[in-house]
Design a protein around this nucleic acid. Sequence first.
DNA 1: GTCTATAACGAGATAGAC
DNA 2: GTCTATCTCGTTATAGAC
Lengths: 246, 246
Amino acid sequence: MTTIRGARARARIEVTAAIKDEARRQLAAEGAAKLSLRAVARELGMVSSALYRYFPSRDELLTALIVDAYDAVGATAESAIAPPAAPAPTARWLALCRAVRAWALAHPHEYALIYGSPVPGYTAPRDTVAPAARVGAALISIARDAHRSGGLALPSLAEEIRPEAHRLTATLAPDLPPAAVVALVAAWSQLFGLISFEVFGQFNRLVEDRDAFFDEAVARLAHETGLGAHPAGALPGSRAGSRSGG
Amino acid sequence: MTTIRGARARARIEVTAAIKDEARRQLAAEGAAKLSLRAVARELGMVSSALYRYFPSRDELLTALIVDAYDAVGATAESAIAPPAAPAPTARWLALCRAVRAWALAHPHEYALIYGSPVPGYTAPRDTVAPAARVGAALISIARDAHRSGGLALPSLAEEIRPEAHRLTATLAPDLPPAAVVALVAAWSQLFGLISFEVFGQFNRLVEDRDAFFDEAVARLAHETGLGAHPAGALPGSRAGSRSGG
DNA sequence: GTCTATAACGAGATAGAC
DNA sequence: GTCTATCTCGTTATAGAC
């Protein structure tokens, strides 16, 4: 009967979630390298072999955590720029960056899992590729909007980067100018450089007002990406007065 | 006698170096979280208790590795911009960035140790602060030279960042304009964002010509920092009048 | 079919007695 | 320094409950 199947399915979903929750707890406490199926099982009152009904190996459990983390930060980024968010590209850019940063600060261990050092002995399977691309795709959609409304201002590219620029454009956004795609990929990695330095402690005892510093740096990044002008002070901040890019 | 003392000191240095070498090997194989004094000792044919004569704890061994790594990348950065390197700020900036990236790609595990996820359960002691600052100090010295020769072109700062900007300036480089210091700290973190994405695999199956991409991104960063004009022409909307060029 | 429990493997870490 | 007894781990085989 469907009720029985439904009950079983529900139980399975609940146990799977409990396993991942406990695994995340261990991630925070001991790090991904020491994630242990046995410890997870013990903490849940199960026997280790029972876990194999849910995750065929330790690596698959890790993969599930990684996919969940990418999906969480990706969903955060997407909802930060979804309507009815502010329509101006610079405002959406800032909203996305702030949302990703907030997620990272709220989930530092999951952030470390996906954007920190690789886990020794673990190689990511294909399953992680699509979730990992969501933040980048959200960035691209901002650039696309800006481009459609004529708000993308970019320099021509140096000779040496042109072949790579065309590859990236074909892969990521054939409708955008290659210069924009290169700038976007660079800004993408630099955004996570800012966040990683804060989450991983490089700003300790150096940067105090990290909200303000992040906003400033990210506004500069937007400008570098051609998204909008950044002359003194006209930043779309918590107050009104945001800008249109043209 | 001094000869005996000298021989003992030499032996101590050699053993210390051997321990760190073996520890680095384990770092690469198993990750920092699983670094084990016992395993190091076994591999060296020593007994674990003997190691404690050289490093009083696992954490102190980790600290030594971290300090070594910071010193290595710091020395690399410094020698990349030391005379008789090219004098133009943009050229020195590019040289520094390339050198740091090359070091990171050649020593990915040591890079991960210092710029990747924090090691669970380990908190860095004061000893790491000074070595960790060397790359940043090298970046500052480039900006200082550019500023002295009138080659730093920067926008005025937004209201919200000014207090932080003055704190940073007082801490890092009181002789530089606050806008330059803020831009420098941002560029510093963004440079390592670029490198981390490459070293940690985020560019896999995405960026092919990574040399070209890195050079392009780092040239943009230099421009954002006020160091010089972008190779393929000025970015639109940029405040004018930078450069002497190189 | 779906799940959990028992037991075991080979490998490695660990604590303490000697 | 050495040795041993006792832990941990991932993983598998198997048996039985629902």
